[in-house]
Structures are given as structure tokens and as C-alpha cells.
Design a protein around this nucleic acid. Structure first.
Length: 1163
RNA sequence: GGGCGGGUAGCUCAGUUGGCUAGAGCAUUCGCUUUACACGCGAAGGGUCCAGGGUUCGAGUCCCUGCCUGCCCA
């Protein structure tokens, strides 16, 4: 998509700018709406966020790059995005100021199934139309409109939040640049044997008729039943390999005879026979009656696809059942009984009855499990293990069908009753049919109810509540469905192994710190990927240890279409439809001919290297015939294309040779592309490559130089559930596709494609060693509501960032979100509707608003006001001239700057914000500004420090609250600058704050003596304030502080400070006049007095105050002396600590004595 | 079922290798229209650090068990 301008015209902030708020304040409070749009325009005009890769490539600047986790175009951004984007912006802005060439790449994700489902729902609701009422192209165009709309909304939200993204380089996962990367990646992985097509059980959504991923499903408890079905036992002839031939059911067969059908003889097994084989409980049944086993199932309708019954080898019945078969009622299929310890024993057979009670399945189990490999993932595994046939009995819409793998009903009319029924209908019908039949009835017999001697096929049902998978998008119950899908072989060591090796050693389990090498076969890691917080590394590693191949095909229209092509060969009436062997032969005979021709022509027109002609079909890797959804008989996979041109050529080739006749009188009818699209995560996995222009950045001015300059990127900031879905896949793709150090991967020669697999294997052992896509992964917290529930629109507890921006301002939102970002996994945001607007909001954002207001008022109302009155003199602050409070302030600034740098490095956002909160509010506003008010107008030196202090604070705060700081900086920048030795405040570009340099404060500014002395002042002031408050001295009343001559001398430099801050008329070195109203108190280790508090001292209040103090002191003294009386403490604790305790106790005891004396005097 | 978090003041959360009287913001109470800020200033109250056991001179912090709660994976 085209680059979007960084203008504010489309911005969501509706309020117009009403002029310079500094000169025309309508209200005393900071009004973000008056400032934010103007700052956006300013940044835009400066092109401040456009990255310059050439500066990195030339060595002028180090790169700093963050790729935005692309939000879905399904909807607008929510608070979770706001949090993540705030953090990314803090990092980006800070590093930009630190002199890095910063690129924050924005973009959006096409979110295949989610977006398609949203658009389909809207079309149905608004126009009553379904997807298939449109052509594929029409429908995709409609989704594209939706995408354009939401992409715009998302972009505007990002801008309103102040995100310093490089909007000139915005990407979309389906734009041309990303599409090129997808084709290239698919092509390479396919060619290298890392993408394959295969049959698997997938989560099938029968409504949307597509495979969906686990993360697109949710589990919900459903009230259901366990049904108990009886399967009659029979003898059957063995197949050639000792397995029984599946016998097709028959109308003709009678239970009493051993009729033959399809070469298999079937005879009932009687209870007598089982009894003779030692089957427990067989003698409880009439001896001549046909025996049965009872399977327990929650899904009776799938019995149509059963291909075995399984029981546990430890089951005492197992031995007697060997070499016996089961005949599926109605269908008549004869299936084997297999033994597998996967099967849960019924509770009664457990050795440990307690454990059996706690296993709900054991409570319901009969010990016999029906095995339906095509409709249950566990059964599928059993099917593979025991080499069972897989019979799919459903159509893609979930109805019972004989067109997708089930062929027996064609020969048995009885089973026809199920065809076309939905899963729910089929379930009822199966139960009804079982209820109407007896064991021993002919399988196809007419439904007569069991006579008195008959035993119902239906044994009963028990209520059972269990969790059932549903599709997120359609809410339909997921059908485990066997179908043809595309897979990435992530289990390959070049992918999963390489992802684990990317972790830094200290974050890998199984890697000992030193010495014990080789505990893991792949212990030689690259060590460049690091998780913050580190615990997530374990999750990442475990994911790869248990990873399964990744199903990447989706039966959707919205997405990257799989770049693989099929040919169809007509059968000229000579081939029996659906006959695998004949079709296979046809392929064998025709394919080479067609492919040879194709290769020759593609070489002639220059697209040969972009077409991977797949001859592995000969090795049986790709099944020639497929009778499953999406592919019909006679259609074969032939090639994978890398470019649109090569695809076009292929289609032309198909058309042009449509009349050519090949062997067996068959003809090439055409070539067309696979209908499926790729899982959205496939394109997301390439995000660090595609956004930076891979495979050929030079092709577009937007991407030129990006890949070389910015991959590996600096950090990925994302949510934890994304670790498995996205982080892992990006690492695998980046490392694989950039391995070998070549940016543009060379396409291997096609000279010898049939042996490619083996001949290239040795070279490939070095593949997967490319760079990681990002060095750090920061996992941020999940925003929850006040009850710990995840925020979502559907739950009604969501908060829209734009609402917060309207009510509190973008800075306030950012500040609050950053403040909440501690190392925990969740952050709670109590939500309540705003009484005025009805929109959801949270009081938590008040903190951010107050903070911005405080900064605004302190800056404009005090600092800038004073600086404007008496400009700073150039060269005016050198250390020798600094007052205590200036030295202290500079020391605080130097410490805060260092703390901020450390926090940013470690992704400690809450600490970063806390540091700045304390610096601004406690240090700068509460103490520094108050302290300098009486002196600053007369002191050029102090004005220089004030100016520098504000400047440093603005720079440190800018990454968190960019708007208000930029607006203040605008005013500050107009004032002349004085230098403050030790403080460097420079600019990278222009005179705006977002490209001002990060402040440099010399470590020598850290002044411990000034801090100690200021602490004394602060203690004294606090104590005086406390005494005043206890005695209810009116705030305006000036009191007199009496100190000893020694203290008076030591306070000489801070006398004015103390007088200002504590409301003191004078500090005198004489005791209060005897008999005058005065209060004694202790502070800074001395006994001091305040006089002139009031005309008369309230003795009662004073007594209360002292008594309270005394209690506290005695408690403390008790604790310390208790410790000192403990011999263990004195012997074992560090001596320094013991000494400190002793000194402390002495001091407290002194104070206790002094207060006791005073209390005595008061009585 | 496997793995990972959390449980500290009324609320939301800090609390570094175990060591000063366990902190902050909001809320509450009291005082204040003070010349930047009531989105403010000054002061105060408020905690059996989930429970039980263990290690230690000393545990909110380390170990074990249990309870509650949330998430990820299967």
C-alpha cells in the first residue's frame, strides 16, 4: 500500500487549536487537545521519524529498529495495543535521542480468517448475501475495502497516540512488497523440502469450511452424553498381511449363516466360545447368543467411519478377543480389535481405586474404544500406529457423505439413511437405529424391535459434561477432519533446532553454566536472542521441543494464494473414474512429457529459474489422486512459482497446449493455481524480512537499504501468547532464509531436480544459521479489567484509546500505561463507564493527567515565567557559585538520568516512569522550585541551573509524554541558554525536542555531600511542618526556630531554604525566652524549639504528640535491643550491622529520655 | 495433564544479593483559596505481607506443603 502522510488532517482529535495556550490560557489546567494536533503537525513537517538507512550503512549512526507487531485489520486498536505501542514508542524515541538511527516500522496484518469472517457477517447482515454469491475477485475486493477503512483508522490511532513510526514506510502483510517475500519464502522452503502437502486431521470449521488453527478455537463445556453402543463380534477371514479385509456390508447376509462377501467370511462369535477362551463374565450370557463388546462414545455419528475397536492390553478380556473381529451394525463393516495402552481401563479394573475415582473418563469407560481415524485426532494417531484405514464420512459442511472417502454405503441401502444428515441429525438417527435393532439382527435388516430374547444394540447413555472445541469465528463446533493440507516442516532441525540455538546460553535449559558441555546435542548456540522477562525463554524452548509440523493452508479467499499449480489430464474415457492405479499410471506416462515441454518453454522465455517443477511426485511423495476436499481425481500438483510472471507463463502454457495429446489418449486440460490461501502467520513470520524489503530491498525506494541496515532488529515487543505463534516462526524464517549470509538467496540449478533432496543435504546442514530477526524479545503484560478479566469488546469491558485521549490526553494515557508496566504478567485496569459520555474509562488515567498538568504548570507557571523575566546569562553556572539546592538538584538530575538509562536498557518501564515522577514532582516541584523562589530572580547562576534542570527533565520525559514536553520545549527553546558545567544539552536535528539529544550529565555532578546536607534540611523542615500541624498553627503564621549556636553555624548555607520551606520567620541561636509559649522537638539529632506558634501552647495537644512519639520510639528501641540481646545476632551478623544497631539504640534512648523529660515538665 | 505467574494498606501496585520503623499513587480524615498547579499544597490514619511448616542470629524475600486466582501449552 502507499505510504501515508504523517499529517494531522485525518487525526481523531476533533478540537481545534485555539492559539498559544501559554499566552491565552482559558483554564489554568493543561489542555492536551490544544497542544497535541499542533505537535503532530510539527513532527510531521520536520520529517522527524523518517529513518535514513544510509546513515547506518555509512557508519554514521548505529541502527535501532522496532517492527510493530502488525495489528489485525479486523478492528480498531484497543488498550492492549495502546500499551504495547506506548512502550515501543518510548524505546524508539529514547534511542532516537540517544543518536541511534531509529526506525519504527508500522504496518497491519490481513488476518485471513478473522477479516473474512467479519466481512462475511456484515454482508449477510446488511445485504443478505453469502460469500459464494460473489466471485472470488469480487469478494476479495470487498474485503479490501474493509481493510482500507480499518487500516486508516489504525493509522490515525497510532498517530493520535503520538507513535513516532516511520509512516512513509508503512506495510501491509498483503501489499506487493510483502507478497513478493511470501512467494520467495514459499518457493525456497518448498524447493528445500521444508514445505509439503499431506493428509492430516485438522480443526475443521464446517460453517466457514476451512481448517482453523488451535488459536482460532476456544473450548466450551457442553452438556452431552456418553452413549454405549454394542458391536457384535464375528470371525472373519484374514487378509494377506494378517489384517482383515474391510468387508462391505450386505443386504443379503444373515446372521445365522457364515455368508461370504467380498472374499471375507463372517461368522458370529458366541458367548460360549468366549467363555471357553476365558473371557471374564461371558458365562453371564446365553451361550448360543452372539457376543458383543460395548464401546463408549460421545460422538455416535462417527461410528460410520470406525475402522477398529481398541482395548488396553492389560484388560483381562484382551486375550480372549485376539483374532476376533467386530462387525459394525447397519454398515456391516468388519473391523479388527486392536490393543493399545492408550485406552483407558474402566474404573473397576484400576489397581488404585482412588486414582480411578479422580479420572472422569475411567468412570465412563467400558474399556472398548471405537477408533475413527478420520474424525478424531487421538484415533488418527492410533490409526497411523496400527496402520488402519481412514474413512472420512463427512462432507466439508459436516454432513454425512459417501463422496469423501466412505465407499461402503454404496452397497448397503441401510446406511444410506445417514447420508446428507447433519452431525446432529446423524447422531439422533444413529441412536434411533441402534435402539431399533438387536445384536444378531442382520446388519441391514429392517429395523424390527428386539424380541424378548434379543439384546438391544443400544446399551444406554449417561449424562456427561465435557469441553468441546468451537470455532472462534463461526461459533460452530469444530470437526476433527482428515484433509489435504500444506505444511511447513518446522520439526526439521534447520527450523525448530535453529530457533532454540538462537537463545543466549544462559536462557537455555540443559545448558550448564560451564564445564558440562554437550549435555544437549545442539548446545552450540548463537546466543543472540534474549527474552525479557527471562522466564519466557523457557516457554519458547519448550514449544520447540514439542513442536509439530505447521499446517499453513486455509480454505479461504482472503490471503496469499498458495503459489502452487496443478495440471489436469482428461481421461478420454479409458480410465475408470477414481481408480488410483490407473491414474497413477497415467501420471507416470504423461508427466515427464509435459514437464519436459514446460521446462523447455520456460527456459526459452526466461522464467525457468522462477518455476520449481516438482518431479518428486514419482517418489510417491505427493499422492496422485486425492478424493478429499479441494482436489478432484486426475488433478496433480506440478510446480511452484516464485513470481507473478512465472505463474502467468504457466497458465499460458496450460492454455496453449490444451489440445496436445499425450500418451494414453489423455490431454492436458489446463493448469491452475491451488485454491487455498496461506495461514496469516506465514506472512507474519516473514515480517522482519518483508517489511525491510527482502529478498531485494533495492527494488523499492521505500525499502532500499533497510534490510542491510536494520536486520537484525533491536527488540520485539509483544504479548506472551504470541511467543509460540509468531516469535518462534519469525526466528525460524529469518534464520533459515538469511542463512549463508546472502541477502538475495541464489536459486539452485534445476539441472538435477530429482536428486536435489539428497545431493543438497550436506550443504543444507549449515542452513538455518542466519541472523535472528531481533536481539531482544520483550513480553509485556496483558491489560485486564478490575476483575482480572481480559479486556474485549464483546465482554463490554474494553476501553478505547481514543476515548482516553479525548478525556485525558494522549500523554496521560501513555504515562499511566507505562507506569503500570511492571514485570508481572497481568496489569489490572478497573473500568467504569464515564457518567457524562457513557464511554468506558478508568480512574487510573487521572494519575497521568495530573502528572502532565503538574509538569505544565511547573514549567510554564514557574520556570519559564521566571526565566522570561530575567534571562539566563551566558556562561553563568560554574560549580563554585552553586548553592546547596542547586548542587542537590543537579545531583538528583544526574542520578535520575543514569537510572533512566538503566531502566530503558532492561525494559523496566514502571521504574523509568517512577524515577521521573519522583524527579519532577518530589524533587523539582516540591523542593527545588519552592526553595529557589526567593533567590532565583536575583541569581543568574541559579537561573542557568533552573533552565538546565527543566531541559533535562523534558528530555528524559519526552519518550513517555511527547506532546506536552514538546510544547514546553517550544517555549523554553526561545529563551537564551546558559551553560551549566557538567550538563550537555545538544541537538541531533533541528530545534525540536523529538530530535534533541539525550541529556549528558557528568558523573561528577553526583554530590553526596549536598545530598546529605539537603536531607538534613528536609528532615528539619518536615519536622517543623509536623509540629506546626499538630499545634494547628495557621499556615501563614511565621514561627521562630531556636537552635544551638553550633547548628546555626552548620545551617548557614541553608538558612533561607529552611525559612522558606517551613514557614519560619527567623532561625535564632538562642533558646526561647523562659516562660514564653514554645515547643521543644527533636530533629537532625538535636533538641530544638519553635516559638511564636500561637499566643498560648495547647498543653494537651503537645502531650498527645509527645506520647505518640514516645510509643513509637519505645517500640523501635524494643525491637533493636531484642536483636542485640540475642547472642546469635551479635556473634553471627556482620559486625558493621551490629555496630549500627548499637548506635541506633543509643540514639533512640537519648530521644526517649528527652521526650520523657518534656512530658514530665508538662504535667 | 505439563509449564509459568500472582496473593503485601479500602483499591491498583513497588519491595534489588535475606538486614534500618514494609513503601508509592489513588481513596479516607484534618487543615489551607498560599502569587505555577484544587488535575493543587501541608499533615495524619490505615498492613497477622494467603495459611501452615522448615532453613537462619534474622524471612514479605529462600525451601516444602496446602488454599485461592490468572495465563500459556497439550
Amino acid at each position: 500500500m502507499a505510504a501515508t502522510s504523517n499529517g494531522t488532517s485525518g487525526g481523531p482529535n476533533p478540537k481545534p487549536t485555539t492559539g498559544d495556550p501559554a499566552t491565552a490560557p482559558a483554564s489554568k489546567a493543561y489542555q492536551p487537545a490544544n497542544v497535541e494536533p499542533r505537535m503532530l503537525a510539527k513532527w510531521d513537517a520536520a520529517g522527524a521519524f523518517t529513518a535514513h538507512p544510509e546513515r547506518v550503512l555509512s557508519g554514521e549512526a548505529r541502527p535501532y529498529c522496532i517492527l510493530i507487531p502488525p495489528p489485525n485489520v479486523t478492528g480498531a486498536l484497543h488498550l492492549g495495543h495502546a500499551l504495547n505501542n506506548t512502550l515501543q514508542d518510548i524505546l524508539t524515541r529514547a534511542h532516537r535521542m540517544m543518536g541511534f538511527e531509529a526506525l519504527w516500522m508500522p504496518g497491519t496484518d490481513h488476518a485471513g480468517i478473522a477479516t473474512q469472517a467479519v466481512v462475511e457477517r456484515r454482508l449477510l447482515k446488511e445485504q443478505g448475501k453469502k460469500r459464494k454469491d460473489y466471485t472470488r475477485e469480487q469478494f476479495v475486493a470487498l474485503v479490501q475495502e474493509w481493510k482500507d477503512e480499518y487500516e486508516k483508522r489504525i493509522t490515525n490511532q497510532l498517530k493520535a497516540m503520538g507513535c513516532s513510526c516511520d509512516f512513509t514506510r508503512q506495510r501491509f502483510t498483503m501489499d506487493d512488497i510483502c507478497a513478493r517475500a511470501v512467494r520467495e519464502a514459499f518457493f525456497r522452503l518448498f524447493k528445500d523440502g521444508l514445505i509439503y502437502r499431506g493428509k492430516r486431521i485438522v480443526n475443521w470449521d464446517p460453517v466457514l469450511q476451512t481448517a482453523v488453527a488451535d488459536d482460532e478455537c476456544y473450548d466450551e463445556d457442553v452438556d452431552s452424553f456418553f452413549y454405549y453402543l454394542r458391536y457384535p463380534l464375528v470371525h472373519a477371514m484374514q487378509g494377506p498381511l494378517g489384517t482383515p479385509t474391510l468387508r462391505v456390508g450386505s443386504e443379503k447376509r444373515h446372521s445365522e449363516s457364515g455368508g461370504t462377501q467380498g472374499g471375507t467370511q463372517v461368522q458370529p462369535v458366541t458367548w460360549n466360545e468366549l467363555a471357553s477362551r476365558g473371557y471374564p463374565g461371558a458365562d453371564q450370557h446365553p451361550g448360543e447368543q452372539q457376543a458383543w463388546v460395548t464401546v463408549a462414545t460421545t460422538r455416535p455419528e462417527t461410528y460410520l467411519g470406525d475402522t477398529a475397536v481398541a482395548l488396553n492390553p492389560k484388560d483381562p478380556r484382551a486375550k480372549a478377543l485376539r483374532c476376533v473381529f467386530v462387525e459394525l451394525p447397519i454398515v456391516g463393516r468388519v473391523i479388527p480389535i486392536i490393543e493399545d495402552d492408550y485406552v483407558v481401563l474402566p474404573a473397576a479394573m484400576w489397581d488404585d481405586q482412588e486414582a480411578a475415582k479422580s479420572d472422569p473418563k475411567a468412570q465412563f469407560a467400558t474399556g472398548f474404544l471405537k477408533v475413527t481415524p478420520a474424525h478424531d485426532p487421538n484415533d488418527y494417531d492410533l490409526g497411523v500406529k496400527h496402520k488402519l484405514p481412514m474413512i472420512n464420512v463427512m462432507a466439508p459442511d459436516g454432513s454425512i457423505s459417501d463422496k469423501h472417502g466412505w465407499s461402503d454405503p454404496a452397497e448397503t441401502r441401510s446406511a444410506h439413511v445417514f447420508l446428507g444428515k447433519t452431525r446432529e441429525e446423524a447422531r439422533k438417527l444413529v441412536i434411533a437405529e441402534f435402539k431399533s435393532r438387536n445384536v444378531g439382527d442382520s446388519s441391514g435388516g429392517g429395523g424390527s424391535a428386539g424380541g424378548p430374547a434379543g439384546v438391544h444394540l443400544f446399551e444406554g447413555q449417561k449424562p456427561y459434561r465435557h469441553s468441546v472445541k468451537h470455532s472462534d469465528r463461526s461459533k460452530a463446533i469444530i470437526e476433527p477432519y482428515l484433509s489435504d493440507q500444506w505444511f511447513v516442516k518446522v520439526t526439521d532441525d534447520r527450523l525448530a533446532g535453529s530457533a532454540n540455538r538462537a537463545l543466549v546460553d544462559e536462557q537455555r535449559t540443559g545448558i550448564k553454566a560451564s564445564g558440562d558441555q554437550g549435555t544437549k546435542a545442539d548446545s552450540a548456540g548463537d546466543g543472540s536472542l534474549r527474552f525479557y522477562p527471562s522466564r519466557y525463554a523457557k516457554m519458547y524452548e519448550q514449544w520447540h521441543d514439542g513442536i509439530r509440523d505447521w499446517c499453513i493452508s486455509r480454505q479461504l479467499w482472503w490471503g496469499h494464494r498458495i503459489p502452487c499449480f496443478y495440471i489436469q489430464i482428461s481421461e478420454s474415457g479409458r480410465i475408470e473414474a477414481g481408480n488410483p492405479t490407473q491414474i497413477e499410471n497415467l501420471v507416470q506416462q504423461n508427466q515427464r512429457h509435459i514437464l519436459t515441454e514446460l521446462r523447455r518453454e520456460s527456459e526459452l522465455n526466461g522464467t525457468a529459474q522462477d518455476i520449481w517443477i516438482d518431479e518428486r511426485i514419482h517418489a510417491g511423495r505427493f499422492p496422485a489422486t486425492v478424493s478429499f476436499p479441494g482436489v478432484s481425481a486426475g488433478k496433480f500438483m506440478i510446480a511452484c512459482c516464485k513470481t507473478q510472471q512465472s505463474a502467468d507463463f504457466l497458465i499460458r502454457f496450460g492454455k496453449g497446449t490444451g489440445n496436445s495429446t499425450y500418451a494414453c489418449d489423455s490431454r492436458l486440460l489446463g493448469i491452475w493455481q491451488d485454491d487455498d490461501v496461506l495461514d496469516t502467520w506465514f506472512s507474519s513470520a516473514l515480517w522482519p524480512l518483508s517489511t525491510l524489503g527482502w529478498p531485494d530491498p533495492a527494488q523499492s525506494p521505500q525499502t532500499k537499504g533497510l534490510l542491510e541496515a536494520f536486520n537484525p532488529t533491536s527488540v520485539l515487543s509483544t504479548a506472551r501468547e504470541i511467543i509460540t505463534l509468531w516469535v518462534s516462526r519469525m526466528v525460524m524464517m529469518n534464520r533459515y532464509l538469511l542463512s549463508g549470509g546472502t541477502l538475495v538467496p541464489s536459486v539452485s540449478s534445476l539441472d538435477n531436480p530429482t536428486t536435489q533432496d539428497r545431493s543438497a543435504r550436506d550443504e543444507r546442514t549449515t542452513q538455518g544459521n542466519g541472523p535472528v530477526p531481533f536481539r531482544d524479545v520483550f513480553i509485556h503484560a496483558v491489560v485486564q479489567d478490575g476483575d482480572g478479566k481480559r479486556m474485549s469488546k464483546s465482554a463490554g469491558n474494553g476501553v478505547d484509546p481514543l476515548d482516553i485521549i479525548d478525556s485525558h490526553g494522549a500523554d496521560a494515557m501513555r504515562f499511566t500505561l507505562a507506569q503500570m508496566t511492571t514485570n508481572t504478567q497481568d496489569v489490572r485496569m478497573p473500568v467504569k463507564p464515564d457518567p457524562k459520555s457513557g464511554k468506558n474509562t478508568s480512574e487510573k488515567f487521572d494519575a497521568g493527567r495530573s502528572f502532565c498538568n503538574k509538569l505544565w504548570n511547573a514549567s510554564t507557571g514557574v520556570a519559564i515565567a521566571r526565566l522570561s523575566k530575567e534571562p539566563v546569562n551566558i556562561g553563568s553556572s560554574i560549580p563554585a557559585n552553586r548553592t546547596l539546592v542547586d548542587r542537590w538538584m543537579l545531583s538528583r538530575l544526574a542520578r535520575a538520568t543514569a537510572a533512566c538509562e538503566s531502566c530503558l536498557k532492561n525494559y523496566e518501564f514502571a521504574d523509568y516512569v517512577q524515577t521521573l515522577y519522583q524527579l519532577l514532582w518530589w524533587d523539582f516541584c516540591d523542593w527545588y522550585l519552592e526553595a529557589i523562589k526567593p533567590t532565583v530572580d536575583a541569581s543568574p547562576e541559579q537561573r542557568a541551573v533552573l533552565r538546565a534542570a527543566l531541559d533535562v527533565i523534558l528530555r528524559l520525559l519526552h519518550p513517555v509524554i511527547p506532546f506536552v514536553t514538546e510544547a514546553i520545549f517550544e517555549q523554553l527553546a526561545k529563551l537564551p541558554t546558559g551553560s551549566v558545567a557538567g550538563v550537555t544539552l545538544s541537538s541531533i536535528r533541528g530545534d525540536i525536542l523529538c530530535t534533541a539529544a539525550w541529556p549528558k550529565l557528568d558523573a561528577s555532578l553526583i554530590d553526596e555531600a549536598a545530598e546529605r546536607e539537603f536531607e538534613r534540611v528536609r528532615e528539619l523542615v518536615n519536622t517543623v511542618r509536623n509540629v506546626r500541624s499538630e499545634h494547628q498553627v495557621p499556615p501563614k503564621r511565621r514561627v521562630t526556630l531556636h537552635v544551638s549556636p553550633a547548628i546555626a553555624a552548620s545551617l548557614s548555607t541553608s538558612r533561607g531554604l529552611i525559612e522558606t520551606l517551613a514557614g519560619i520567620e527567623a532561625i535564632v541561636a538562642t533558646p526561647p525566652t523562659h516562660g514564653s509559649p514554645a515547643v521543644a522537638f527533636r530533629a537532625i539529632g538535636e533538641e530544638l524549639h519553635l516559638s511564636n506558634l500561637a499566643d498560648a501552647i495547647d498543653a494537651g495537644a503537645e502531650k498527645d504528640r509527645l506520647t505518640k512519639q514516645l510509643e513509637q520510639l519505645r517500640k523501635n528501641a524494643g525491637a533493636i535491643s531484642g536483636r542485640l540481646n540475642n547472642p546469635g545476632y551479635v556473634d553471627k551478623a556482620p559486625p558493621k550491622l551490629v555496630e549500627e544497631s548499637k548506635a541506633q539504640l543509643a540514639k533512640i534512648n537519648d530521644e526517649i529520655a528527652a521526650i520523657e523529660g518534656k512530658l514530665g515538665a508538662l504535667r
